[in-house]
Nucleic acid binder design. Structure first.
Lengths: 204, 204
DNA sequence: GATATTATCTGAGCACTGTCAAGTTCCGGC
DNA sequence: GCCGGAACTTGACAGTGCTCAGATAATATC
């Protein structure tokens, strides 16, 4: 806060500023020099806190991932306390997933963009989920509640994640984008799609 | 071909070169000046064929979208001629979707990246699908075959697309990336996930 | 409390980028 | 033959990521 030589917590300040630039101008507008300027520091100062631009982007992506995760965890908690059965909990988490993407498109994008970041390298999905991702772990746990056969749990978890992620991606970056402005419509669509995939499942 | 002043078909040459750069070095490595250099032309020549870099990227994304579309159309045709029933046709298209993403990750990414391109603005999904996307239209048509109730067709189509797209995205940019190197495993996983989403569908 | 250490920040500078304005060369139609 | 316009070039500007040699401030040591 003081106009002193040392900034205090430049790293945090840079990340925060990057977050707001991200939200308002998109990922393409991120520039280390610009961030430094905004924070009121020389152009090379950021290099003492981040290896390079990609490193900063990775930190930002980790933040975004954590935000998404807590959104999922919150939804899981709410659904649990309001006492719906496991199926409802699953769709509640899925809806939260989709709504997070629609509410924070840039953050959602960044969380799944490995040219800059480098998200969860290697992941077995049954066990491999990082410990700090409590929301995602809950998602997997709910699926395991729903699917008794252990052999199918993995496929079921991947399927559940795929539907939510796919819908989110189509709304944020795909053909469903026009819909994304109407939050209620998104919620309704997400509910229908996630709660009742009455499509294939015909062949054995 | 001749070393004359006029290039002949610079636009096509630029797009081709961009395609190969994309494939080998990723979307971040695209540079107008570099493309011009590779094609053997001055740095500003591309501006006579593309409004700016984003415009070139859009053209490239359109190409990518067309490629994905023909992959879907091919799969649909094959599944039809080998005479599986509609459910099989749907999963065949979905598997083709996922395999395309895994086989051509950069092209798949670009096709769904609107900071540069600007894909199908506005799309109703029942009717709004562009005419030239024959593969995608086939996907929707198959879903309509499978789901008799017209009210549910839209949700069903969005759901089918979401699963395929979500799985593709998780394999290309997400936590399932380690799996993407093993093409057979991808195919098997896609088959299971797409053919039997035996998860939610519990609540009404 | 003075001194040395170390983390933090500055400044100049390099190679690169996208883009614009103004010239040059070439081709097709009169 | 000429001439208008399309295709391309030259030159330049502002902005970028990043490196390196120093300056400065906070901290540890005595």
């Amino acid at each position: 806060m003081p106009a002193s030589y040392h900034h205090g917590d430049l790293r945090r300040a840079l990340l925060d500023e990057a977050g707001s630039v991200l939200e308002s101008a998109g990922i393409g507008a991120l520039s280390l020099r610009d961030l430094a300027r905004r924070v009121g520091v020389s152009a090379t100062a950021p290099y003492h806190h981040f290896k390079n631009k990609a490193d900063l982007a990775t930190a930002l992506a980790d933040d975004a991932m954590a935000d998404l995760d807590t959104a999922l965890a919150d939804a899981a908690r709410r659904a649990q306390s309001s006492g719906g059965h496991p199926g409802d909990r699953l769709t509640a988490i899925g809806v939260a997933y989709v709504l997070f993407a629609v509410d924070h498109p840039e953050r959602f994008r960044l969380a799944f963009r490995p040219e800059m970041s480098a998200p969860f390298e290697g992941l077995a999905l049954g066990d491999g989920l990082p410990e700090d991702l409590v929301g995602f772990r809950q998602l997997v746990a709910v699926v395991q509640d729903l699917v008794p056969d252990p052999k199918r749990q993995r496929v079921a978890a991947v399927g559940a994640w795929s539907i939510a992620h796919g819908l989110a991606a189509l709304l944020v970056d795909g053909p469903l984008r026009p819909l994304a402005t109407d939050r209620d419509a998104v919620r309704a669509l997400a509910m229908s799609v996630l709660a009742a995939p009455d499509l294939p499942s015909m062949p054995e």
